[in-house]
Design a protein around this nucleic acid. Sequence first.
DNA 1: CTGCGGCGTGAACGCGCGTTTATGCTACCT
DNA 2: AGGTAGCATAAACGCGCGTTCACGCCGCAG
Lengths: 355, 355
Amino acid sequence: MRKSEISSAEIARLAGVSRSTVSRVVNNYSNVPPDTREKVMNVIREHRYVPNLSAQVLAGKGTRTIGLFMIEPEQVSRDILSNMMLVSVIEHASLREYCVLTSIIRDTSDEEAVRALKDIFYQRRIDGGIFIGAANEEPLIEELIAEGYIVGVVDQRLPGREEPNRVVVNFDNDYGMMLAVDFLHSLNHREIGIVTGDMKRSSGPTKYAGFEEAMKLRDLPVNGDWVIPGGFHESDGYEAMKSFLASDKRLPTAIIMANDSVAFGAIRAMRERGIDVPWDISVIGFDDHELSSRFQPPLTTIKVDFGVMMRELAEAVIVHIEDEEAGRFEYTVRSELVVRESCRKLQPWNAQRKG
Amino acid sequence: MRKSEISSAEIARLAGVSRSTVSRVVNNYSNVPPDTREKVMNVIREHRYVPNLSAQVLAGKGTRTIGLFMIEPEQVSRDILSNMMLVSVIEHASLREYCVLTSIIRDTSDEEAVRALKDIFYQRRIDGGIFIGAANEEPLIEELIAEGYIVGVVDQRLPGREEPNRVVVNFDNDYGMMLAVDFLHSLNHREIGIVTGDMKRSSGPTKYAGFEEAMKLRDLPVNGDWVIPGGFHESDGYEAMKSFLASDKRLPTAIIMANDSVAFGAIRAMRERGIDVPWDISVIGFDDHELSSRFQPPLTTIKVDFGVMMRELAEAVIVHIEDEEAGRFEYTVRSELVVRESCRKLQPWNAQRKG
DNA sequence: CTGCGGCGTGAACGCGCGTTTATGCTACCT
DNA sequence: AGGTAGCATAAACGCGCGTTCACGCCGCAG
């Protein structure tokens, strides 16, 4: 029924050669004379012959497939970013003639789900996997690495030990936080708070560490009251800010948000209490969400090129698949400051908020 | 190196039986006595044996894989919706123990890209494919169907002819448009415009048809001036409305938007001209975007459950894969009206705008 | 003319599995 | 006791491909 289900044996028969010769032609072996090659190629073209991947795999080739796994997608990002990451991986893989098998794992403590995911590696013999939103030291990932699979992750600290099959890309969160703090500092802010992301996941820990580091470098105190535990969603930002405001603690003059979605939510909560951004408080986001430029007020943010990031990760994973000897890999994506209208310059004398 | 790369032959040897018996156990054949089954199962569990899918495929089984293809993703939707659709398909497939191979095709007139996509079917022998954002009568899809592959599409009219391997889900755009028009009508609007989606793609044509139909049913005139060609993005809405406003045509009293993103953009353009929603004009969107409830003004919209829609589509594709005899399939997802604050009730006497 | 090296090619094997066919065994009936 | 039905299991084949090995041919040197 299906047109293209023609075997190399059939091609061989039609071209009047042996199957070995067809295979040699298909795989570009040098020891086949031009006229024979042409003869075989004609038959191949005419019948649109394409080798059956399953057979190739069985005969020892790779699957040319990488897995793309989103861990607890609800906890990481429902929005455009993960979509862009997906597209970026797929398109780069496609360039290298790889395919992408996508899956989701909602709960890494669900043994059955973990088992199902590992079976994708075992059954399907995929060449490698990329994980988005994984916690640090996620057992699932550690096990896969230990078992010899090539795994790419985003935004995790590398362990000290050498592990040639672990591939990492990071945002330069330290640098990004430095940009944010420096910018606020240049606007005479000294009282800077943060709504953190999920501290167990993704960029949560590294962003917070970067924040502390940057504050320290500029001799600014980190006030525990202003370290507001959040998450990565609009609703997290809203809830975090709402409960902070309800606590009647003194406001900082500026707050850095785990990402732009969180900023949207936090600003919404502030607006409900009559707090104006940037007049009453300055806000900096992270990521440069598609809607940030159109938000009211347009959001100043630290922009990260997720497309480039995921492309680099995909490339690195593929390199490691194709070259067992490829060494340790770590790539860091620079971020940049995008200035819009959510931050206000303070006069030096009111850099400290009264009561 | 990789733990789990154990063959059934090895399992057979360890269990002291033949490979056939192992196969029978794995595939739950009835003619194997309980004690033998248990003996084999123990070895399987101990060694975490998982059959090699490539070998199974070669031996005649399906790949248990469906393709999910996003056509010209930039033209359809960069936002949360396609992400939700993806997640929904993956999760349902996963339930049925299928995997999802994701790919993208940016330009359906790029022959090489089309060829690459078809090769996914040919080489990898995937059992079926789902296309998001395909144009009506897209040749690529028509060819695949003609070649016997099972294909699922969204929001397309079914051709009259019987095609057992074409699976379709539709939003009920007629019904949705009827809801929108009726709601506006109940608010005394009679001058209703529309910013259309891409008229060549996705729900563009069906939404417009539904609009005309609904207007006709309520005896409302469709004014060509107020049929504003748009697209599916924020920027499309912005540009469409901007150029409409620049044309100095008279405004309708209400506009229905191709989707919520378009509404965001159009409202932005209106705001720039000092036009207030809903005071000066009422707006209804489509989709119920995640941000619609938090938009200023909160957007009245026609909500469609994309999750359910894609789940049904995935299920239907799988049913057709597993049962050659499964008949024609078409599923329609009901939409519902979500009333927020972007529509205003008109007094009967100003239902027609002056000059 | 014989021997040998190189090149083009086909036959044969193995990859891991499902399936079909054949075989050995037990139990029962005549 | 002989025959047979039925069941548990092993042996064998094929799926489509890559690859190794061996064979046959040709040309060249001895």
